[in-house]
C-alpha cells in the first residue's frame, strides 16, 4: 500500500516570457519502508518535487495524496499541523534554529505539539544518542560541525515520529566520513523503525545505498529502479 502518491503533479515557474516546468506531470508512488534516492542533474526538479510532496510548496496542478489526504487541498494551519505530525524534513543547509541547542532543536517540534516535558526529554536524549550526539546535546549549531548539524537535523525530523522523512541533498555539504556516518544512521532507522526515507542526491555513494532510485531530468521522471535486495 502506498503512503505517498502524486498524481500529474506539475510546478511551473514563469521566468520573463518563458515557462520553466520544474516538475512536469509527475505521477509516482512511495511504499511504506522504502529508502528512495531521487537523482538527476542540478535543476532537474528534485527540490521542487520534494517540497511539493512535503507540502512546503504549492504545486501548480496535480495532487499529493498522503495517507488518503490530498494535502494540496489543506489550508494554512491545517497544512502546518499535517506537516508537523506526518512529515520530517532534512534540508541541505541543515536548517537548525541557530539560537537553540542541539537538544532544544530536536525537542522543538514536540514542544510545538504540546508533548509533556518528561516525554520530550527522554525522546530527545534517545534520538540524539541514536545519531551519536549524546555528548554534545547542549551545543548550539555554530559550535558543531556540518556532519553533526545534519545529524541533529535528522534527529529533529524524527522527533515527532513522522511516517516518513524527506531529505533534500542531506549530504551535499558533508565530507565522506560524515556522509557515510549519516547514511548508516538513516539506513538503521529505516530498517529498525521502518521509517520511509525519500532523499535527493548527486552523490554516487549515497545512490548505492538506496533501495530505489528515481532519476529526473527536466522535471520528468526518466527512470525508476527498485533494487532487489
Amino acid at each position: 500500500m502506498s503512503v505517498i502518491k502524486t498524481e500529474n503533479l506539475r510546478k511551473t515557474y514563469h521566468q520573463g516570457d518563458y515557462e520553466i516546468h520544474a516538475v512536469d506531470d509527475v505521477s509516482v508512488e512511495f511504499e511504506q519502508g522504502e529508502f528512495t534516492a531521487v537523482v538527476g542533474p542540478s535543476g532537474s526538479g528534485k527540490t521542487t518535487l520534494l517540497n511539493a510532496i512535503g507540502g512546503l510548496d504549492e504545486p501548480t496542478s496535480g495532487k499529493v495524496i498522503i495517507n488518503n489526504t490530498d494535502i494540496t487541498q489543506l489550508k494554512g494551519n491545517q497544512l502546518i499541523d499535517f506537516r508537523m505530525n506526518n512529515i520530517g524534513f532534512v534540508f541541505q543547509a541543515y536548517n537548525l534554529i541557530p539560537v537553540l541547542t542541539a537538544k532544544e532543536n530536536v525537542g522543538f517540534v514536540m514542544l510545538l505539539q504540546g508533548r509533556p516535558e518528561s516525554e520530550r526529554e527522554s525522546r530527545v536524549e534517545e534520538l540524539l544518542a541514536a545519531v551519536g550526539l549524546g555528548e554534545i546535546m547542549n551545543k548550539r549549531p555554530n559550535q558543531m560541525s556540518g556532519g553533526q548539524q545534519q545529524r541533529v537535523a535528522v534527529a529533529r525530523a524524527l522527533a515527532p515520529k513522522p511516517q516518513f522523512i524527506l531529505a533534500d541533498e542531506p549530504t551535499a555539504n558533508l565530507d565522506s566520513v560524515s556522509t557515510s556516518n549519516l547514511l548508516d544512521i538513516m539506513a538503521r532507522l529505516n530498517k529498525e523503525e521502518g521509517i520511509t526515507f525519500i532523499f535527493s542526491t548527486h552523490d554516487q555513494r549515497v545512490i548505492d545505498r538506496a533501495s530505489r532510485v528515481i532519476t529526473m531530468e527536466d522535471g520528468k521522471i526518466i527512470s525508476d529502479e527498485r533494487k532487489v535486495q
Binding site: R83, L96, F108
Partner: peptide
C-alpha cells in the same frame, strides 16, 4: 522560514 517549515504556526 525554518520555524514555519518545521511546524510553528504563523
Amino acid at each position: 522560514g525554518v520555524l514555519l517549515a518545521i511546524g510553528m504556526k504563523k
